[in-house]
Design a protein around this nucleic acid. Structure first.
Lengths: 130, 130, 130, 130
DNA sequence: GTGGTCTAGACCACG
DNA sequence: GTGGTCTAGACCACT
């Protein structure tokens, strides 16, 4: 399940968003799968209903899930609305963010790349990465 | 100089801290070098003076700079305040974040690694990484 | 000012979002302009602070405004991240929405086009539309 | 047949109502034509039977269809339940919505009008619009 | 002072 | 039962 860490700098709703995104990235959640209900997840994580709702809203806005009213939220992975150039722009932005957070620690570049490769390899890649 | 991004999730003062530490890690700032004055940097970055002051306080607390009264702030010998294990933990967390943001977009793993290598290479790796 | 209509089918926060977007579209709000504070607008519109905050969040997510922590929200019009093809896709989607709402009423097509032209003409177009 | 879009802001039953009225407005459905059965349409659209029933109730209440017991629902003479002024008000509201969504993207006015004309033309304007 | 987050509890529309 | 919206009131970090 999704792990909420109180000591985390990220707000709770962001941790939920990241948790779901990670499950999608790793193939644990696939296209069409139903997310746990807002109330159910709230009880399970011991947080307020609104906090989960906010996280789910964010996921909907990101286009990775879709809400079917009265039924629940469902993963909708295929979102080809972004052009390749924009994907690269997002990628570069995310990488810059990583670099500016991690390089100041004095970690050798080689280590950074290795750990990234390790994490990527641990994902059951959905399809065309084989 | 240091880049401030308004869209960044980190507060401005943290961006300044990271920016200075990045310059130290990359060898652009060396032991004994003088940091720009609080006011000067504030004007240059177009941020509030208090924000720069807070960043400089943080840097002093971290032990990477030292204040010499009436003269300014100076870089002092870089101490590894964080243990290797802590660094790796931070690194892994940051990488997980990157992965969950980028993989759902369907970007090939190879591309992610390549762009990271490109960005790291552009930093001109300092001596101690060899 | 922004008008909130209780009889409107759209939720309040959406009305605020649309109101701000419209002001930007009409050139009444320009790049760099500051939005009214969350609390100020909430009092003025006689709604809850969170409702305004939610609207402002939405606007931030849409990329039309940017939050500078501790200072307020500012309009940031130039967002060239979308390719022309995607703009057209968004346009067509919005038009389809309009059509499916309005044509069932039996309004002559000519009238629809005329009213659209009228509304567009009433906007002080920012720049390249001259 | 009728198109159901999950991403639409309108609930499904409203989309069905609008879809049927659109077919009537465009002349695809004429006075006396039989509507598909509740169950049949529900299966075809892959939605809940209650949803279609609700839409059909709405259409009956609007007076655009009539139920003949044991036979089904039939289109009846289109009455202008809404005054012209009300129609125009709805039209203007919908257009304002379109404008505030699309103009901030920086799309030339001419393009907007052209795409609208294209979509309207593809509907094959019925007789009474001449 | 600013926005951002969280809780608690309520009501609504949809299916 | 589902998610969506709104209110009320609280606390926090940043400037």
């Amino acid at each position: 399940m999704i792990q909420i860490t109180t000591g985390d700098s990220r707000p709770i709703f962001k941790q939920i968003v990241d948790g779901v995104m990670l499950k999608i990235a790793s193939g644990e959640l696939n296209d069409g799968d139903k997310l746990p209900s807002v109330r159910g997840l709230a009880i399970q994580l011991m947080v307020n209903t609104n906090t989960v709702a906010k996280a789910y809203n964010e996921l909907t806005a990101l286009g990775v899930v879709e809400s079917k009213k009265g039924l629940g939220l469902f993963v909708c992975a295929p979102k080809g609305v972004l052009s390749e150039a924009e994907k690269l722009a997002k990628l570069d932005e995310a990488i810059t963010h990583l670099v500016s957070e991690v390089v100041p620690l004095g970690i050798p570049f080689q280590t950074i790349i290795e750990r990234l490769q390790t994490q990527l390899a641990s994902l059951k890649q959905p399809c065309k990465q084989d």
